[in-house]
Amino acid sequence: MSAAPSRNSAAGRIRRGSLADIEAVLALEALFPSDRMSRRSVRRFLSVPTAQVLIAENADAAVVGNLVWLRRKGSRAARIYSVVVAPTARGQRWGERLVLAMETAASAAGCERASLEVRADNAAARALYAKLGYREVQTLPGYYDDGSDGLRLLKPLLRV
C-alpha cells in the first residue's frame, strides 16, 4: 500500500501511523460503545501491507483521531474499517480530513471505490459520509456486537 499523504496545516496534520501510535489508537478505540479493536488488531493493522492507519494530530502534536483502512491484495476496493475522533476535537473537521486523506491514498494505490459500514443510529457520521459523496447501498440488521443495525456505504473514487 502506498504511503498516505501528509496533510499539514496550522491546525495540525494527518500522517501515517506507526507502532509508536498503539496506545493513542487504543485510547481512541475505548470511546466506541462496542466493536472495539484489540491491541493485537491495532498492532496488526499498523504492520501489514494490506492495512493503513492514518493519525490526526492537532497543532500541539496530540493524537485527536485515527482512521484504519484496508485493501485486499489485487483488489480495487478500499474499505474504511474504523474512524474515531476524540470528543474534544469534534467539530474541527478531523473526520472529514481523515476520510479525504484515505481517499487520496486509496486512489493512488489504484482503488476505484471505497466502502464502509456505519451504525444506523450514528447521525453525525452518516451526515459526514453523505457530505463526502458516500451513498447507502445496504441495510445490515443486527450488524454490531450490541445488536444495533448497520448501513453499508459506497463511493466511487477518482483515479489520481
Rank of each mutant, 00 (worst) to 15 (best):
A86Q: 10
R90A: 00
I80T: 12
S75L: 12
G95I: 02
M102W: 10
L98E: 03
L98H: 07
G65N: 06
L67W: 11
L98R: 14
W69L: 13
R97G: 02
M102R: 15
G95A: 04
S82Q: 07
E96K: 11
L98Y: 04
R71Q: 10
R76H: 15
R72L: 08
G91Y: 01
E103R: 15
A78Y: 03
V99N: 11
K73G: 11
G74S: 13
R90P: 00
R76Y: 13
E96A: 14
R71P: 05
I80K: 09
A86V: 13
A77D: 02
L67C: 13
L100Y: 08
L67P: 04
T104Q: 13
R79V: 08
P87S: 12
R97F: 02
R72V: 07
R76L: 15
S82A: 09
R72N: 10
W69I: 12
A101W: 06
Q92N: 06
R76A: 15
G65F: 03
R93P: 00
T88H: 10
A89F: 00
V68Q: 07
A77P: 00
R97M: 03
K73T: 12
G65E: 02
L100P: 07
V68W: 06
W94H: 08
L67F: 11
V84I: 11
R72A: 09
A77T: 06
A78C: 11
R76Q: 15
V83W: 02
W94M: 02
T88L: 09
A86I: 11
L67S: 13
A89S: 02
V68G: 07
L70H: 05
S82R: 08
E96G: 09
R97L: 06
S82P: 01
S75E: 03
A78E: 01
R90W: 00
R71C: 06
M102C: 14
R93F: 04
G74K: 14
G91L: 00
Q92P: 01
L100S: 12
W94V: 02
G95L: 03
V84R: 10
R76F: 15
A89Q: 01
W69Y: 12
R72Y: 05
R97N: 04
G95V: 02
W94D: 00
V99W: 15
Y81A: 08
Y81V: 12
Y81H: 11
A105P: 11
V85W: 01
G91I: 01
A105E: 09
P87E: 08
E96S: 13
L70T: 04
A77M: 05
G65C: 08
R71Y: 05
I80S: 07
A101C: 09
W94Q: 01
G95M: 03
L98A: 10
L70S: 03
V84A: 09
G65M: 06
L70I: 08
